[in-house]
Computed example of a mutant assay.
Amino acid sequence: MTLDTRKFEVLRISILSLCNFACVYCAPKEKENLTTHKNPSQFLSPERLKTNLKKLIPHINIKEVHLTGGEPTLHKELIQLIQIVNQHGIKDIALTSNGNFEFGLIPKMKAAGLTRMNFSLDSLSQIEFERISDRKTSISKVLEHILEAKQLGLLVKINSTILRGMNDMEIIDLLQWSGERNIPIRFLEFMKMGPLHKEHPTFFYSANEIRNQIDTKYKFQSYPTASDSTADYYITEEGYIFGLIANHTEPFCDGCNRLRMDSQGKIYGCLSDETSFDLPDNSSQIKKTLEQAMLTKKREFTGSELSMKYIGG
Protein backbone atom coordinates (compact mmCIF):
# COMPACT_ATOMS: atom_id res chain seq x y z
CA MET A 1 0.00 0.00 0.00
CA THR A 2 1.31 3.46 -0.89
CA LEU A 3 0.65 6.89 0.59
CA ASP A 4 -1.36 7.66 -2.55
CA THR A 5 -3.83 4.86 -1.83
CA ARG A 6 -3.87 5.03 1.97
CA LYS A 7 -6.84 6.58 3.75
CA PHE A 8 -7.50 7.64 7.32
CA GLU A 9 -10.27 5.37 8.63
CA VAL A 10 -9.55 5.04 12.36
CA LEU A 11 -9.50 8.06 14.65
CA ARG A 12 -7.60 7.57 17.92
CA ILE A 13 -8.22 10.33 20.43
CA SER A 14 -6.15 10.98 23.56
CA ILE A 15 -8.93 12.70 25.51
CA LEU A 16 -6.61 13.70 28.35
CA SER A 17 -2.91 13.53 29.09
CA LEU A 18 -3.20 12.55 32.76
CA CYS A 19 -3.04 9.06 34.22
CA ASN A 20 -3.44 7.47 37.64
CA PHE A 21 -0.54 5.12 36.87
CA ALA A 22 3.08 6.01 36.16
CA CYS A 23 4.07 2.94 34.15
CA VAL A 24 7.79 2.50 33.58
CA TYR A 25 7.40 2.50 29.79
CA CYS A 26 5.26 5.65 29.70
CA ALA A 27 5.89 7.93 32.68
CA PRO A 28 8.59 6.49 34.95
CA LYS A 29 9.08 8.24 38.30
CA GLU A 30 6.24 10.59 37.40
CA LYS A 31 3.78 10.99 40.29
CA GLU A 32 1.40 13.70 39.19
CA ASN A 33 -1.08 15.01 41.73
CA LEU A 34 -4.31 14.99 39.78
CA THR A 35 -5.86 17.70 41.97
CA THR A 36 -3.23 20.24 40.92
CA HIS A 37 -3.83 19.87 37.19
CA LYS A 38 -6.80 22.02 36.24
CA ASN A 39 -5.56 23.29 32.90
CA PRO A 40 -8.52 22.66 30.55
CA SER A 41 -6.13 22.11 27.64
CA GLN A 42 -5.23 18.74 29.18
CA PHE A 43 -8.81 17.54 28.76
CA LEU A 44 -10.56 17.32 25.41
CA SER A 45 -13.79 19.29 25.77
CA PRO A 46 -17.07 17.95 24.41
CA GLU A 47 -17.36 21.14 22.34
CA ARG A 48 -13.94 20.60 20.73
CA LEU A 49 -14.71 16.93 20.00
CA LYS A 50 -18.04 17.85 18.41
CA THR A 51 -16.44 20.59 16.31
CA ASN A 52 -13.56 18.41 15.12
CA LEU A 53 -15.81 15.49 14.21
CA LYS A 54 -18.02 17.87 12.23
CA LYS A 55 -14.91 19.06 10.37
CA LEU A 56 -13.46 15.60 9.72
CA ILE A 57 -16.51 13.52 8.77
CA PRO A 58 -17.03 15.16 5.33
CA HIS A 59 -13.43 14.25 4.45
CA ILE A 60 -12.90 10.88 6.15
CA ASN A 61 -15.00 7.73 6.32
CA ILE A 62 -14.39 7.15 10.04
CA LYS A 63 -15.03 3.48 10.71
CA GLU A 64 -13.83 3.54 14.30
CA VAL A 65 -13.13 6.01 17.08
CA HIS A 66 -10.79 4.80 19.80
CA LEU A 67 -10.63 6.83 23.02
CA THR A 68 -7.28 6.70 24.80
CA GLY A 69 -5.16 8.83 27.12
CA GLY A 70 -3.57 9.08 29.58
CA GLU A 71 -6.27 7.16 31.39
CA PRO A 72 -9.58 8.06 29.69
CA THR A 73 -11.77 7.03 32.62
CA LEU A 74 -10.38 10.03 34.56
CA HIS A 75 -12.17 12.40 32.19
CA LYS A 76 -15.15 13.91 34.04
CA GLU A 77 -17.16 14.18 30.82
CA LEU A 78 -16.27 10.75 29.40
CA ILE A 79 -19.88 9.62 29.02
CA GLN A 80 -20.75 12.77 27.09
CA LEU A 81 -17.73 12.27 24.81
CA ILE A 82 -18.87 8.72 24.00
CA GLN A 83 -22.39 9.98 23.34
CA ILE A 84 -21.09 12.64 20.94
CA VAL A 85 -19.16 10.05 18.93
CA ASN A 86 -22.22 7.81 18.85
CA GLN A 87 -24.46 10.69 17.74
CA HIS A 88 -22.21 11.21 14.72
CA GLY A 89 -23.13 7.77 13.41
CA ILE A 90 -19.87 6.05 14.30
CA LYS A 91 -20.83 2.56 15.41
CA ASP A 92 -17.45 1.17 16.47
CA ILE A 93 -16.42 3.05 19.61
CA ALA A 94 -13.54 1.65 21.64
CA LEU A 95 -11.68 2.68 24.77
CA THR A 96 -8.32 1.62 26.20
CA SER A 97 -7.99 1.64 29.98
CA ASN A 98 -5.69 0.43 32.74
CA GLY A 99 -8.76 -0.87 34.58
CA ASN A 100 -8.22 1.26 37.67
CA PHE A 101 -11.55 3.05 37.92
CA GLU A 102 -14.70 2.96 40.03
CA PHE A 103 -17.23 0.17 39.71
CA GLY A 104 -20.41 1.11 37.88
CA LEU A 105 -18.71 3.00 35.05
CA ILE A 106 -18.70 0.22 32.45
CA PRO A 107 -22.53 -0.07 32.20
CA LYS A 108 -22.73 3.73 31.76
CA MET A 109 -20.13 3.67 28.98
CA LYS A 110 -21.93 0.86 27.18
CA ALA A 111 -25.27 2.66 27.44
CA ALA A 112 -23.64 5.76 25.92
CA GLY A 113 -22.53 3.74 22.88
CA LEU A 114 -19.21 2.08 23.75
CA THR A 115 -18.74 -1.21 21.89
CA ARG A 116 -15.20 -2.33 22.79
CA MET A 117 -12.67 -2.12 25.61
CA ASN A 118 -8.96 -2.85 25.55
CA PHE A 119 -7.36 -3.33 28.95
CA SER A 120 -3.68 -2.81 29.63
CA LEU A 121 -2.55 -5.73 31.80
CA ASP A 122 1.19 -6.22 32.08
CA SER A 123 1.33 -8.61 35.03
CA LEU A 124 -0.77 -10.98 37.13
CA SER A 125 1.63 -10.69 40.05
CA GLN A 126 0.67 -8.03 42.59
CA ILE A 127 4.32 -7.23 43.26
CA GLU A 128 5.27 -6.91 39.59
CA PHE A 129 2.03 -5.08 38.80
CA GLU A 130 2.94 -2.42 41.37
CA ARG A 131 6.50 -2.27 40.10
CA ILE A 132 5.46 -1.64 36.50
CA SER A 133 2.57 0.75 37.27
CA ASP A 134 4.42 2.47 40.14
CA ARG A 135 1.17 2.48 42.11
CA LYS A 136 -0.25 0.61 45.10
CA THR A 137 -3.32 -0.63 43.26
CA SER A 138 -4.98 -4.02 43.64
CA ILE A 139 -4.59 -6.21 40.58
CA SER A 140 -7.87 -7.93 41.49
CA LYS A 141 -9.79 -4.71 40.80
CA VAL A 142 -8.39 -4.59 37.28
CA LEU A 143 -9.18 -8.27 36.65
CA GLU A 144 -12.75 -7.79 37.91
CA HIS A 145 -13.28 -4.92 35.47
CA ILE A 146 -11.99 -7.00 32.57
CA LEU A 147 -14.45 -9.77 33.37
CA GLU A 148 -17.29 -7.30 33.96
CA ALA A 149 -16.80 -5.70 30.55
CA LYS A 150 -16.92 -9.10 28.87
CA GLN A 151 -19.97 -10.17 30.87
CA LEU A 152 -21.81 -7.02 29.81
CA GLY A 153 -21.27 -7.91 26.15
CA LEU A 154 -18.48 -5.53 25.19
CA LEU A 155 -15.77 -6.86 22.88
CA VAL A 156 -12.71 -7.15 25.13
CA LYS A 157 -9.00 -7.49 24.44
CA ILE A 158 -5.98 -7.42 26.72
CA ASN A 159 -2.78 -5.55 25.87
CA SER A 160 0.47 -6.62 27.55
CA THR A 161 3.66 -4.66 26.96
CA ILE A 162 6.56 -7.02 27.56
CA LEU A 163 9.67 -5.64 29.25
CA ARG A 164 12.90 -7.59 29.59
CA GLY A 165 13.73 -8.28 33.22
CA MET A 166 10.28 -7.27 34.46
CA ASN A 167 7.39 -9.30 33.06
CA ASP A 168 8.99 -11.36 30.28
CA MET A 169 8.56 -14.51 32.38
CA GLU A 170 4.79 -13.96 32.72
CA ILE A 171 3.92 -14.40 29.05
CA ILE A 172 2.62 -17.96 29.49
CA ASP A 173 0.63 -17.02 32.62
CA LEU A 174 -0.97 -14.03 30.90
CA LEU A 175 -1.88 -16.12 27.85
CA GLN A 176 -3.39 -18.86 29.99
CA TRP A 177 -5.42 -16.45 32.13
CA SER A 178 -6.89 -14.67 29.13
CA GLY A 179 -7.31 -17.81 27.05
CA GLU A 180 -9.23 -19.66 29.75
CA ARG A 181 -11.67 -16.73 29.80
CA ASN A 182 -11.96 -16.56 26.02
CA ILE A 183 -10.37 -13.11 25.85
CA PRO A 184 -7.84 -12.37 23.09
CA ILE A 185 -4.53 -11.03 24.36
CA ARG A 186 -2.00 -8.99 22.42
CA PHE A 187 1.66 -8.92 23.40
CA LEU A 188 3.38 -5.67 22.49
CA GLU A 189 7.00 -5.01 21.84
CA PHE A 190 8.13 -2.16 24.06
CA MET A 191 7.91 0.93 21.86
CA LYS A 192 10.75 3.40 21.57
CA MET A 193 8.74 6.34 22.88
CA GLY A 194 8.70 8.77 25.76
CA PRO A 195 11.02 9.00 28.79
CA LEU A 196 12.71 5.62 28.16
CA HIS A 197 13.42 6.47 24.53
CA LYS A 198 17.18 6.18 25.05
CA GLU A 199 16.97 3.12 27.34
CA HIS A 200 14.87 1.19 24.85
CA PRO A 201 17.51 -1.53 24.12
CA THR A 202 17.73 -2.39 27.84
CA PHE A 203 14.06 -3.33 28.18
CA PHE A 204 13.25 -4.46 24.64
CA TYR A 205 11.89 -8.00 24.26
CA SER A 206 11.14 -9.01 20.68
CA ALA A 207 8.02 -10.58 19.21
CA ASN A 208 10.10 -13.57 18.13
CA GLU A 209 11.23 -14.13 21.72
CA ILE A 210 7.60 -13.94 22.83
CA ARG A 211 6.58 -16.39 20.10
CA ASN A 212 9.37 -18.80 21.06
CA GLN A 213 8.41 -18.70 24.71
CA ILE A 214 4.77 -19.50 23.94
CA ASP A 215 5.99 -22.34 21.71
CA THR A 216 7.54 -24.06 24.75
CA LYS A 217 4.05 -24.84 26.10
CA TYR A 218 1.48 -24.39 23.36
CA LYS A 219 1.11 -25.49 19.76
CA PHE A 220 -0.39 -22.70 17.68
CA GLN A 221 -1.10 -21.64 14.13
CA SER A 222 -1.94 -18.40 12.33
CA TYR A 223 -5.39 -16.94 12.96
CA PRO A 224 -7.32 -14.72 10.47
CA THR A 225 -6.05 -11.16 10.76
CA ALA A 226 -7.50 -8.00 9.18
CA SER A 227 -5.25 -6.33 6.62
CA ASP A 228 -5.14 -3.09 8.62
CA SER A 229 -4.50 -4.82 11.95
CA THR A 230 -1.50 -3.79 14.03
CA ALA A 231 -1.22 -7.37 15.32
CA ASP A 232 -0.52 -10.74 13.75
CA TYR A 233 -2.88 -13.22 15.40
CA TYR A 234 -2.45 -16.87 16.34
CA ILE A 235 -4.60 -19.52 17.97
CA THR A 236 -3.45 -22.40 20.16
CA GLU A 237 -4.85 -25.93 20.05
CA GLU A 238 -6.77 -25.01 23.23
CA GLY A 239 -8.46 -22.13 21.39
CA TYR A 240 -6.46 -19.36 23.07
CA ILE A 241 -6.14 -16.37 20.73
CA PHE A 242 -3.11 -14.11 20.98
CA GLY A 243 -1.62 -11.38 18.86
CA LEU A 244 1.84 -9.93 18.49
CA ILE A 245 2.29 -6.20 17.91
CA ALA A 246 5.86 -5.88 16.71
CA ASN A 247 6.40 -2.24 15.81
CA HIS A 248 10.16 -2.65 15.67
CA THR A 249 10.97 -6.14 14.37
CA GLU A 250 7.95 -6.80 12.15
CA PRO A 251 6.80 -3.33 10.98
CA PHE A 252 3.25 -2.86 9.77
CA CYS A 253 3.37 0.86 8.98
CA ASP A 254 2.46 0.40 5.32
CA GLY A 255 -1.06 -0.59 6.29
CA CYS A 256 -1.64 2.09 8.94
CA ASN A 257 -4.97 3.90 8.52
CA ARG A 258 -4.90 5.79 11.82
CA LEU A 259 -5.30 9.49 12.44
CA ARG A 260 -4.58 10.69 15.96
CA MET A 261 -5.95 13.60 17.95
CA ASP A 262 -4.61 14.94 21.25
CA SER A 263 -6.49 16.50 24.17
CA GLN A 264 -6.16 19.97 22.63
CA GLY A 265 -7.77 18.86 19.39
CA LYS A 266 -4.57 18.81 17.34
CA ILE A 267 -4.15 15.96 14.86
CA TYR A 268 -1.14 13.73 14.13
CA GLY A 269 -0.53 11.46 11.18
CA CYS A 270 2.11 9.20 12.70
CA LEU A 271 3.32 7.96 16.10
CA SER A 272 6.90 8.38 14.90
CA ASP A 273 6.44 12.06 14.02
CA GLU A 274 5.76 14.79 16.57
CA THR A 275 4.35 17.14 13.92
CA SER A 276 0.84 18.24 14.87
CA PHE A 277 -1.78 20.17 12.92
CA ASP A 278 -4.69 22.38 13.92
CA LEU A 279 -7.87 21.69 12.01
CA PRO A 280 -8.77 24.85 10.07
CA ASP A 281 -12.33 26.11 9.69
CA ASN A 282 -12.23 26.21 5.89
CA SER A 283 -13.30 22.88 4.34
CA SER A 284 -10.77 23.03 1.50
CA GLN A 285 -8.00 23.74 4.00
CA ILE A 286 -9.04 20.71 6.09
CA LYS A 287 -8.47 18.46 3.09
CA LYS A 288 -5.02 19.97 2.59
CA THR A 289 -4.20 19.55 6.30
CA LEU A 290 -5.18 15.88 6.20
CA GLU A 291 -2.94 15.39 3.17
CA GLN A 292 -0.06 16.97 5.09
CA ALA A 293 -0.75 14.69 8.07
CA MET A 294 -0.70 11.67 5.78
CA LEU A 295 2.70 12.71 4.44
CA THR A 296 4.17 12.49 7.97
CA LYS A 297 3.58 8.72 8.02
CA LYS A 298 6.79 6.70 8.07
CA ARG A 299 7.59 3.51 6.19
CA GLU A 300 8.52 1.89 9.50
CA PHE A 301 8.26 2.78 13.17
CA THR A 302 11.22 4.89 14.28
CA GLY A 303 10.05 6.02 17.71
CA SER A 304 9.62 9.39 19.32
CA GLU A 305 10.50 11.19 22.53
CA LEU A 306 6.85 12.20 22.81
CA SER A 307 5.22 10.24 25.64
CA MET A 308 2.42 7.91 24.59
CA LYS A 309 0.02 9.55 27.04
CA TYR A 310 -0.05 12.73 24.96
CA ILE A 311 -0.94 11.09 21.67
CA GLY A 312 -2.49 7.76 22.64
CA GLY A 313 -1.47 4.31 21.49
Rank of each mutant, 00 (worst) to 15 (best):
E144F: 10
L18P: 03
L44F: 00
L121V: 05
R48A: 07
M1S: 05
L174N: 06
I127A: 13
F21A: 04
H88T: 09
K91I: 08
S276M: 05
H197E: 15
C19Y: 07
E64A: 04
M261K: 01
K217W: 12
L121M: 05
I158P: 02
L175F: 09
L56M: 11
A149L: 11
E238K: 13
P72F: 00
I90K: 07
Q126R: 08
I158L: 13
S229D: 14
R131I: 03
S178K: 02
M261D: 04
K141T: 11
H145M: 10
L67K: 00
E291V: 00
T2E: 11
T68A: 13
G255F: 01
L143G: 02
G99H: 02
N247M: 11
E250A: 14
E30P: 03
Q126C: 06
R131P: 03
K288T: 04
A293M: 08
S263I: 03
A22L: 08
I62P: 03
S17H: 12
G153Q: 12
R181V: 05
I311D: 00
D228G: 07
V156E: 01
N61P: 03
G265A: 04
I60M: 12
S206T: 15
Q221F: 13
E199G: 00
A111E: 10
F43C: 02
Q126F: 07
T161K: 01
I57Q: 13
S272N: 06
I93K: 01
N212C: 05
D262S: 11
L295N: 13
E291T: 00
L143C: 08
P46I: 00
F204I: 05
S140L: 08
D168I: 09
T216G: 10
D122K: 01
S178G: 07
L53W: 01
K76I: 14
F103Q: 15
R260C: 10
N159M: 13
L56P: 06
I172K: 10
I245V: 12
Q151L: 14
F203G: 04
C256E: 05
G239N: 09
Y234V: 06
T249K: 06
G303L: 08
S17P: 08
G165M: 09
D281Q: 09
K31P: 11
S123W: 01
M308P: 06
L188N: 07
G303A: 09
S263Q: 10
N86S: 15
S160F: 02
N33V: 11
T230L: 12
N167W: 12
A94N: 09
T115Q: 06
K297Y: 03
